[in-house]
Design a protein around this nucleic acid. Structure first.
Lengths: 351, 351
DNA sequence: ATGATGAATGGTCTCGTGTCCATTACTTAA
DNA sequence: TTAAGTAATGGACACGAGACCATTCATCAT
C-alpha cells in the first residue's frame, strides 16, 4: 500500500494496457462500459492521481502560472492572488505565488525559480529597476506569456492590467483642491530608479493641471512601506510650511501616516487632511474614517487571469498579439471623514 | 534563439557530452578548468536553466512544498506564508499556496492538486470536517510529510505547530474577569463539525476555571468571517442581558465586531469591553486602541518550515518519527484601551 | 464469402534530467 | 615497460505520462 501508484499499476490491476487505462480518464466514451468500470475500480482502489510533472514534460509547458506580487501581506496583493487563483483553478491551472518587495533585483531569482518550474505564464507586479527586464524578454521569447499588473513601465512591451493611476491622482488632487487645499504632498516622489510608480509619477502633473505645484521640500524619494510612510509624514509635518493634505499611495502607507499624525497630536481633518489609496476595512473604522480611493481588485485580477487563459488556451498565436493589450481600470473615490477645508486660508490662492 | 534550451544544447555547444555538461552545475570540481569554462560559457550563452520537473521525475518527489491556509487575505496567514516561503526558499524549495476557507470539503481538491504536483510535504491549516482526513493519511503513506498548523484536531497523528490557544483563552478570561466581567462571550461556539477550533473550544473551560459559566444564549455556532462576527455581535448585544465583554477569535472577526458595536452607538470600553486575537496594525489605530493577544507568527512559521526541512533533508526516517512533534507557542496579551471594568456591578459576583 | 469499415485496445517513442556504469587517457610505482 | 590506479568523460537507462500509429476483432455491405 505504500509508495506511489502509476497508470501502469492501474493498468496491471485492471488487466489492460496503460494506454487503455489512461483513456478511462481522458476519453471514457471510447471504452467498453465493462472495461471502463474495471479501470475505474482499479483507479479507486489504488487512489491513482496523475503526475502532472510527467504529463507536462512532453508538451513543454506545465499547467502552472507564476504570480509575482510585491508583498503578500499587503491586502491588495492578497486579494489579487486569491481572485486570480480562483479563475485559474477553474481552468485547471495551479498558481505559484512569490514576492519581490518592489525590487527588480529580488525579482530576478524569483523569475528563475518560476521558469525552472516551466510555468506557462507569469503575472508580475514589476519591481523597480531593470535587473530583470532582459530576463523577462527572454522568457517571452521562450514562449511564456508575460503580463504586468498594478504597474507597467512606460516602455513595457508586455500586456498589462493596471488602475487608472493618473485619473485617480487627478481626482484626489481635484477633490482636495476643491476643499481649498494647495499645499498637498504625496507620500513618496517619483524616481526612475528608486521609486518608479505611477501614483507618485503623475502627482506633479495632477497638481499642475489645477495650477498648483509641489514644493521641492515636499519631494522625498522613499519606498512603499509603513515605516517609511511614518518617517516621511513626521518629516513633512515638521517643515516650516507643512502640507495641509497628505495622499498615501497604499493602504500600508496610510497606517504609517496615521500613526505619525496621531503621535504629533494633530487631529483629522481639522489640522490636516488625509486621503489614501486602497479601501481596506480598517479605514472605515478609525476616527475619523478615512477618505479612500478604492481599487476594483477583483475585476483587475479577473481581467489578468482571463488574459492569461486566453493566451494559453486560445489558438496558436493568441498570446502573440502584435499590440499588447493594456487594460486600465477606474478607481472610486469614497468620501469619508478625513478630509476638510484647511484651517488657515492658503496663501497660494492669493498669488 | 526561440524555444527552450536543454542540457543537450549546452553540451553540443560546448562540445562535450550531456553528462559532462551537467557536472558543471553539480560537481564543478570534477571537471578540467578548461572544460568547465567552456560549459559555463555555453550555459551563459544559451541562458540554460534546468527543468526541475524533469529532474524530480526520477526521484519521485519534487522540491516543492504545499501550504494550505484558510484565507490568504487574513494577515495571519499571509505573514505565515511569507515567513515559511523565506525559510523554504533558502533550502531551494518552492512553496505552492492554496486556500480551504476553513472547510475540509474545499480542502480535498486542493490536496489532490498538490499531490498531482507531487509536493514533498504539505503544511496545512486543517479545515472543519473529516472529508480530507483519510486522504491525508494516504498522502503520508505515500511518503509525504504532513504538518498541521494553527489548529490540530485532538486525534491528529500529524506533527503540528500551534498557538497555546488554551493558555491564551485562559489569560484573556482571567484578564477580563480581573476587571470585573462575568458576562463574557466569545464570537463563536465550539461545534465538532461546523466550528471545531481551539479558541472557542477551550473558552467554556477557561470560564469554568474562574468559576464562571457561559450562558446558553451566548452560545452560537458560526463561521470565522467578518460578516458572521458582525451579525453575531449585533445578536449578542440585543439580548436581554447582553455580555459586558467580547472576545473576537481572529483579527477579521474583530473588524466585524467593531463595526457592529459602533453601529449600536456603544462606546468602548465604557459600555463594553472588546479583546481580540491577532495584533494587526490597525488595532492600535482605532479609538480606543484594542487590547489584543499577539501570536508569534514568524516563529511559528519558522518552526513549521524547519520541521518540514528536517523531515525532507534529514536522513531516511527523519520524517517517520514514532511520536509526532507538537510545538505549542505562547501568545502575548497586549493591554491597550478597549477593556475596562463593566459599568454595572455584575450580578454573578454576588451569586 | 470476402473485403471494407470502424470500434476497442496495445506498442513504442518522446520529453529533460539524474544515476549508475563504462570507457578513455594519463600518471605512478615496480 | 607494464600493471595498477586515478582523473576525466561518455553512454545507457529510468522516471510517468501523452501522442501517434499499429493491431485485433466484430459487423456490415456487396
Amino acid at each position: 500500500m505504500c509508495g506511489v501508484s502509476t497508470i501502469q499499476d492501474v493498468a496491471r490491476l485492471a488487466g489492460v494496457s496503460p494506454t487503455t487505462a489512461k483513456r478511462a480518464l481522458r476519453d471514457p466514451e471510447k471504452l467498453t462500459p465493462d472495461t471502463l468500470a474495471r479501470v475505474q475500480a482499479a483507479i479507486q482502489e489504488l487512489h491513482y492521481e496523475p503526475d502532472v510533472r510527467a504529463g507536462s514534460l512532453r508538451g513543454g509547458q506545465s499547467r502552472t502560472v507564476g504570480l509575482v506580487v510585491a508583498s503578500i501581506v499587503e491586502p491588495f496583493f492578497a486579494q489579487f492572488a486569491r481572485a486570480a487563483a480562483r479563475h485559474l483553478k477553474a481552468a485547471d491551472y495551479t498558481l505559484i505565488v512569490s514576492e519581490n518587495e518592489y525590487s527588480a533585483r529580488l525579482e530576478l531569482p524569483e523569475l528563475r525559480r518560476l521558469y525552472g518550474q516551466r510555468v506557462a505564464a507569469i503575472m508580475l507586479r514589476p519591481g523597480y529597476g531593470d535587473d530583470s527586464r532582459e530576463y523577462l524578454e527572454r522568457l517571452r521569447e521562450r514562449g511564456l506569456f508575460i503580463l504586468e499588473f498594478d504597474y507597467a513601465p512606460d516602455d513595457s512591451g508586455f500586456p498589462s492590467v493596471v488602475l487608472d493611476h493618473t485619473g485617480c491622482m487627478r481626482e484626489a488632487v481635484a477633490y482636495l483642491h476643491g476643499l481649498g487645499h494647495t499645499r498637498i504632498a504625496a507620500l513618496g516622489t517619483y524616481d526612475p530608479e528608486i521609486h518608479p510608480e505611477d501614483r507618485s509619477r503623475t502627482f506633479p502633473q495632477a497638481m499642475q493641471d489645477r495650477g498648483l505645484s509641489v514644493p521641492p521640500d515636499y519631494q522625498r524619494v522613499v519606498l512603499l512601506t509603513e515605516d517609511t510612510a511614518y518617517n516621511l509624514t513626521h518629516e513633512l509635518l515638521a517643515l516650516p510650511t507643512p502640507p495641509t493634505a497628505l495622499i498615501a499611495l497604499t493602504g500600508t502607507q496610510a497606517i504609517g501616516a496615521f500613526r505619525a499624525i496621531r503621535e504629533r497630536g494633530l487631529s483629522l481633518p481639522g489640522d490636516l487632511s488625509l486621503l489614501t489609496f486602497d479601501n481596506y476595512p480598517w479605514t472605515a473604522l478609525v476616527d475619523p474614517p478615512i477618505t479612500v480611493i478604492e481599487q476594483p481588485v477583483e475585476a483587475m485580477a479577473g481581467a489578468a487571469a482571463h488574459a492569461v487563459l486566453r493566451a494559453l488556451e486560445g489558438g496558436f498565436d493568441a498570446g502573440r498579439e502584435t499590440t499588447p493589450q493594456h487594460a486600465v481600470f477606474p478607481g472610486r473615490l469614497i468620501v469619508r471623514g478625513s478630509c476638510a477645508p484647511p484651517r488657515v486660508p492658503s496663501l497660494a490662492l492669493t498669488r
